[in-house]
Design a protein around this nucleic acid. Structure first.
Lengths: 188, 188
DNA sequence: CATTAAATTAAATTTTTTCTTAACAAATCT
DNA sequence: AGATTTGTTAAGAAAAAATTTAATTTAATG
């Protein structure tokens, strides 16, 4: 009977199959500023129920501090969660397998920060610009430029407020009323 | 008459005002994987009608090759456009000031690439997994794992197809019917 | 409460990325 | 067409980031 060797071949095929996806996931995460190492960790966990740091180190042949810091980064963007487990000293982690959740956590966090930082800067800038514009002792050319800048910044607020709305609609899941998750093609 | 000094102070204030925003923009672009240098170039151009490489080098005290490569990167994500201009050897560039356009260009490009890469990998993986599942000579434990993986990947397609739809709705601007650009607060 | 095991922080090394100087290619103007 | 200016590519130097080993802290067990 050749069952062991059949299983070996099947195991290999399974690893290959997972490998394709692990590669693709970690490469696309790289596009979002997640380092390749962190991407590989996440993608590897994606196919496992749960893992602890030692198992990851074993699987990916990385050092433990590397695991520790990368896993923490992944936790910050909510792609990995710590699983509470008593009776063991090892911390176990699970990968977030719902990409909708990852999307929400990652982009909302980024966009919110973008809005906050830029609106703050714009407010500070507009205050200075107003002072210039209202000061009639300043030459016209400078006041004109200040006016142009003011208008430009004011214009950009439309975008930032839209981004805020987008974040809200994602957080509240209202967006799925406009763009449903399920479409004809995946109902099969 | 103290007009010159008044103008000097005003000029300084104007530079400060622009500085706040330049800092914020380049920092938030950093979040999207754009290097700080490229971010500063864009943010500087944001306040100018047009610039050529020498003016940028002057303003930011960077080398010319640095400018050249960074500007090319900014062109790839459509944040900077080359302005056709005859009668001069210098190339002049303009910054895209409509953030809606930048948003569209950047995220649609990224998300499309994400969808394409991952769906390709998933198709390849599913082919291999199917073969394992249908091969009755393979042990049950391996076939079970193959089945679980298959289900996991199939599940994830819902997300990728949703992302495709999102890109479409942004490209077609349908999204602005659901989330209008103008809201009460910026109509003032 | 001491001991042991796991995880985190610190410091140092390695790798990767970015930037600059120098040489080259392209294109405009006389 | 030749000369000159601009932009790009190549190679080397500098800076930044990531990774590893070693040391420390934290926490679970006997």
């Amino acid at each position: 009977m050749d069952k062991p060797s059949q299983d070996e071949r099947a195991r290999e095929k399974l690893d290959n199959a997972e490998g394709y996806v692990i590669e693709a996931i970690s490469e696309t995460m790289d596009l979002y500023g997640v380092t390749p190492a962190a991407g590989k960790i996440y993608a590897t966990m994606y196919f496992k129920d749960q893992m602890n740091l030692d198992e990851m180190r074993e699987e990916l042949s990385m050092s433990k501090p590397s695991m520790s810091t990368n896993v923490r980064k992944l936790q910050q963007i909510e792609m990995v969660k710590k699983k509470f487990q008593r009776g063991t000293r090892k911390h176990t982690y699970t990968a977030e397998k719902n990409f909708f959740h990852s999307f929400m956590a990652y982009f909302c966090q980024m966009w919110e920060r973008e809005v906050k930082m830029n609106l703050q800067a714009i407010h500070k800038a507009e205050k200075e610009l107003s002072e210039i514009i209202e000061d009639s002792s300043v030459s016209e050319s400078i006041r004109n430029k200040a006016g142009e800048d003011y208008h430009l910044l004011d214009q950009s607020k439309v975008y930032y407020h839209w981004l805020e709305k987008l974040v809200e609609s994602i957080r509240s899941e209202e967006i799925f009323e406009f763009l449903p998750k399920e479409t004809e093609e995946n109902k099969s």
